[in-house]
């Protein structure tokens, strides 16, 4: 009886959903932070040498934040689903998968941080490329974008919110 109780508790829709939301924001959050760290170090170095680099470095550095924003949205949507009250185990499982999808693709933020770092350096060397390198930095986000779309589709299909 006790074991059944534990299983029902741990595998209830709410719990599964919560785990999904937590995984999403946790993994994406740490990845974004690492990406921002790498880009931020370069931004600091470049700005230290020449203050004019500040504004373009700032914008380039902020780009790896997208992944945590996507994870945050998915997290909120899952939480709204939980707050709505009818989170069946099936919906909970879909939410968990959505969380994993957007969380793990969020690791692309680390790579994006490295590209952002190189782009900040390129802009420091040659200020006229600051618009063009933006395109390079945005490329790794495509992976996170697909993760985000997949997560949203999962949540919509399951009518989570």
């Amino acid at each position: 009886m006790a074991v059944e109780g534990i299983i029902t508790t741990f595998f209830s829709g709410n719990v599964l959903g919560a785990v999904g939301a937590a995984i999403a924001i946790a993994i994406a959050g740490v990845s974004s932070a690492r990406g921002l760290e790498i880009a931020g170090n370069t931004a600091a170095g470049a700005t230290g040498e020449n203050e004019e680099n500040f504004s373009s470095a700032l914008i380039l550095q902020a780009l790896p934040q997208t992944q945590v924003i996507y994870a945050f949205i998915i997290g909120i949507l899952i939480i709204l689903g939980i707050m709505g009250g009818n989170m069946t185990p099936e919906k909970g499982f879909l939410s968990l998968m959505a969380g994993i999808a957007v969380g793990i693709t969020g690791i692309s933020a680390v790579s994006q941080g490295k590209v952002a770092s190189s782009s900040i350096g390129a802009t420091a060397k040659n200020a006229s490329v600051k618009g063009k390198v933006l395109i390079f930095v945005v490329m790794p986000e495509i992976a996170a974008l697909f993760g985000f779309v997949t997560a949203i589709m999962l949540l919509i299909t399951g009518q989570v919110f």
Binding site: E37, A43, G45, A46, E49, N50, I120
Partner: peptide, 18 residues
């Protein structure tokens, strides 16, 4: 690690411009 050179890279890029 690769990311550890980020600061040096920023410094060197800034200096290259000068």
């Amino acid at each position: 690690r690769e990311g550890d050179y980020a600061y040096a890279y920023g410094v060197v890029s800034g200096m290259t411009a000068k």
